[in-house]
């Protein structure tokens, strides 16, 4: 058993793991920063809501759909010029963040929109009937009520990002995916493949457990 893993360079594995964690959680932070307002805008501009605006809602929906309809591996390549312009390199962890956020933010925004739609219609009306501004409505009612749903959306997005980072590895992003492709696939090092896959499984499990626990903590239904 120890012989099987004899050729694994554990320091490489550790570095790749750290890279994956930075890519997943760094891009998750930016994804929430961009996706949450985007999801709110999608919800608030929908017909019957406070900022109902067919044109704006349509434009946002089309932009989100375009980004979501590209397979991530294609998005990675299409965005290389944008990444170069924004961070100066399309390689490594820094180069991966732009396509990761571009892929995950629209996905997260749609999930946020869905979570907001679950907020009881009477509750929204009740808060409006109190004389609330839209700001009050969003901060004091919509976001607190949708919080468990938004956390669940964040969990799903984080797991999607784990798989995206592995793909990003294919175009020079580094991380566990990169290791799996270069050693496990191209150099037939099954031992490295096994280790990276195991680490990815553990990472996904941990993210899901943490997300579920937070959802439970904030649920009052």
């Amino acid at each position: 058993m120890t012989d099987f893993f004899a050729d694994v360079v554990w320091s490489d594995i550790a570095l790749a793991t750290v890279d994956t964690l930075i890519m997943v959680f760094g891009s998750l932070g930016l994804t929430v920063l961009i996706g949450l307002p985007l999801g709110l805008a999608l919800f608030l501009t929908a017909p019957g809501q406070v900022w109902a605006n067919r044109g704006l809602h349509g434009a946002l929906a089309v932009a989100v759909n375009i980004l979501r309809s590209l397979p991530f591996i294609i998005l990675l390549i299409v965005l290389i010029p944008v990444t170069l312009a924004l961070v100066g390199t399309s390689l490594g962890v820094a180069g991966a963040i732009v396509p990761l956020v571009a892929g995950a933010a629209p996905f997260f925004a749609r999930l946020v929109e869905t979570a907001l739609r679950e907020v009881d219609r009477n509750t929204i009306e009740a808060v409006q009937a109190m004389g609330a501004t839209t700001r009050d409505l969003v901060l004091r009612a919509l976001l607190p009520e949708a919080l468990p749903g938004i956390i669940a959306a964040g969990t799903v997005t984080a797991i999607a990002l784990v798989s995206y980072t592995a793909m990003a590895g294919a175009v020079g992003a580094g991380g566990l995916g990169d290791l799996a492709i270069r050693y496990g696939y191209q150099r037939f090092q099954t031992d490295v493949m096994v280790v990276t896959v195991a680490l990815l499984i553990v990472l996904v499990q941990l993210v899901q457990m943490l997300g579920d626990r937070l959802v439970r903590h904030f649920s009052r239904r």
Binding site: N122, A126, A129, M130, A132
Partner: peptide, 25 residues
Amino acid sequence: GPADLRQLRRRVGMIFQNFGLLSSA
């Protein structure tokens, strides 16, 4: 206008079939 309407709404209470309470509060 929006501000006057908010003022009016503070003079008019409303209750609902499904109560419309914040479940998170």
